[in-house]
Write a protein that binds this DNA or RNA. Structure first.
Lengths: 212, 212
DNA sequence: GTTGAAATTAGTACGAA
DNA sequence: TTCGTACTAATTTCAAC
């Protein structure tokens, strides 16, 4: 059960994989679209829905799997039903040169569902699922605070998860947006830029993306 | 393709579902554990791995599905391979009384993978997948800024996704932690509490969790 | 890249423990 | 409830086109 992503970052940094084994065409994307909503569909039904032959579907399906485009299949579950109804985001400031230790400690925390290294005020964001707020508090004060690599934390609770897509595909963008495009074009320029803010990375963090 | 979660929040608020249709035993959790890593496993193999009969596995599997504990099955994909290698978090401050509009606009944005309402300095956090940073910038300035409900935004880029579990289960906690428990007990009290911070919700936001 | 037919496997229904 | 078995339907594999 190795949970640490073996792949490179999603930020276009030092990734690792250079040669692309497979370039995805519209059919590949269609397959991924179907698989997003029904990961247990049979390859036969998949072929039908996508509009290709079974053999072709099998070939493409296997290629997507073998090439790592599809990392794995999983079930989406209702956390409330399993008793982990509290979700929190913990923003962590990591002490320089201690990323390796931070990562190692993360691997020991099964209640962490997601951890990303970010630009901005903090260095990392972790998402945890707990039974109650007391457990979140205990996790932050007892476990995180005891990691020397952790300089500071900031915790925020999730009140509601409004939207959660399994994943986004490039083909998604051509669906809802065209209707709004003209509006965008017209309003371009009138945008009150002052109300938004981009937060860059702290000193030297980008260089520390991989372990230390 | 309705992406907005029909379920209640994950924060224990006004959920909707009251009567629990199914209380999960250790076997149920074991099933979910297997399904987390292999959502396409056959029910026969599942039965084998969990150590129950095939018939029983079918019954429990169906019960978990019908009861909504398993929301759906999906494929996990590599965003870099699909050309959406840039991930950003956008923290949004929403104008009071305009949550309904904000939610409606969100539904029109297919590149948004996740949106949660949070406590703390901001009101919501959305995660987007884009082809490049320019697209993120365009999304924030052209699309988000044009929503009257959006008072302000703060954008942060994800440099690396260190850990991404499909989901956390209550049974996970009894795996890695026991080894560290004694350490926790010893260090309890020596925790430098000053280095962490809990951020509460802004005025009246909890009451506005559902639309408006 | 497609179709069709054999082999295998999945899903269902039943009685017994 | 759970298990084991037998039955039916579907899927996967492999062949030739």
């Amino acid at each position: 059960m190795s949970d640490i992503s073996s792949h490179g970052g999603s930020g276009g940094g030092p990734s690792g994989r250079i040669g692309i084994g497979l370039d995805l065409d519209a059919t590949h994307l269609k397959i991924l679209e179907v698989l997003r909503d029904n990961g247990r569909i049979s390859v036969s039904s998949l072929a039908e829905r996508v509009g290709i032959s079974r053999a072709n579907a099998y070939t493409r399906f296997e290629a997507l799997r073998a090439d790592g485009v599809i990392k794995r299949f999983t079930a989406e579950i209702d956390h409330v039903r399993t008793g982990l109804g509290i979700t929190a985001l913990i923003f962590v400031t990591v002490r320089q040169q201690m990323w390796r230790q931070f990562r190692a400690e993360l691997a020991r925390m099964p209640e962490v569902e997601y951890c990303a290294i970010t630009t901005g005020q903090h260095d990392a964001m972790i998402q945890v699922r707990m039974a109650d707020v007391a457990e979140v508090h205990a996790m932050v004060t007892d476990r995180l605070a005891n990691i020397p690599a952790v300089k500071a934390t900031e915790t925020v609770f999730i009140l509601d998860e409004v939207l959660k897509r399994p994943y986004v595909l490039p083909s998604d963008r051509d669906k809802t947006r065209p209707a709004r495009r003209p509006v965008q074009e017209e309003q371009r320029g009138d945008v009150p830029l002052g109300k938004m803010r981009f937060v860059g990375a702290a000193e030297g963090r980008a260089a520390l993306r991989k372990d230390d």
